[in-house]
Amino acid sequence: MSRRARPLAALAVVAALALGACGGYDETVPKPPKPVAGGPVASATPPATCPDPTADPTRSYEPTGALPAPEDLPPGSTMAAIRKRGRLIAGVSADTYLLASNNPFTGQIEGFDIDMVERVAKAIFGDPKAYELKVITAGDRLKVLQEGTVDIVVRNMTINCARWQSIAFSAEYYRSGQKILVRQDLADKGVDSVAELKGVSVCAPTGTSSLDNIREQAPDAVIKEAANHTGCLALFQQGTVAAITGDDTVLAGLAEQDPYAVVPPQETFTDEPYGIGVNKENDDLVRFVNGVLERMRADGSWQESYARWLQPALNVPATQPKPVYGRTP
């Protein structure tokens, strides 16, 4: 290279370096997502003390005579106010198969619990469809009643003494009991009762008595929580849990949705008397609902509902529980 060519070559090198340095960018790095605040989960049972723990929690308010006709509801009563509004508002589940779930073909929520809502609506309006459903989680059942967002809650809710401190209940409308649902292979290995759950991951919905019960009955199980039983089924299908616990009615609905989920023959390890929840102040509505339940017993509509929704899955006949009255506001 001649002397004269050297500076030009140097310039060319500088230019090439300068050009080469352009166009490359640092690798894109997204900002980490903000952590979602997660507080401690409230227990299903509010920390309330029962004045008389030995008293029967299923004891409710006795109906005042025969049910009035829809047009003869006592003036100033809660029922008259609901009638004036034009619809009964009920808090229900939309994903508890057989009890209350959305039918994708009709778009309507249907099931055993919804039949209860329809009967109450019919008693107030003469029209079983005069209701509005609000889909709530198990953890919201007491809150929506206390806040007056709904008139009644029919969401497989167990009557117990602690809940009576916050709300009022109708007489028992179904006697359920807690069981376990397991993966088929676990059932084949003999995991068929709560006593066999040591080391097994079990799901129960947050804020339910099922969660409290499984913690007590199976302390060696690995407990996981989900927002509801359908959330538990999703965890089950994703392999995060191998078992689900809940009321036999709910588990029957879950097992219907997954061929690898079975509810082995077993004794219930709790008694779960279901009641219709009502705001504590509205004892007139509680008496009225109890009158509706009496009517269902008398006209066979309870039996009809049970036969339609639950009996095919549970494979056992059942009768409407006998009401217990005598509670005073």
């Binding site: 997204p30 900002k31 980490p32 997502p33 939309a94 359908t230 089924l233 999703a234 949705q257």
Partner: peptide, 27 residues
């Protein structure tokens, strides 16, 4: 006709917003 379908739908939406959106924002 299984109710778990609606749960999967909601989970898909929540996941899309929680996981995909921060990536798109970064890009």
């Amino acid at each position: 006709g299984f109710p778990i379908g609606s749960l999967y739908l909601q989970q898909a939406g929540v996941q899309l917003r929680a996981d995909a959106v921060p990536i798109l924002q970064g890009l």
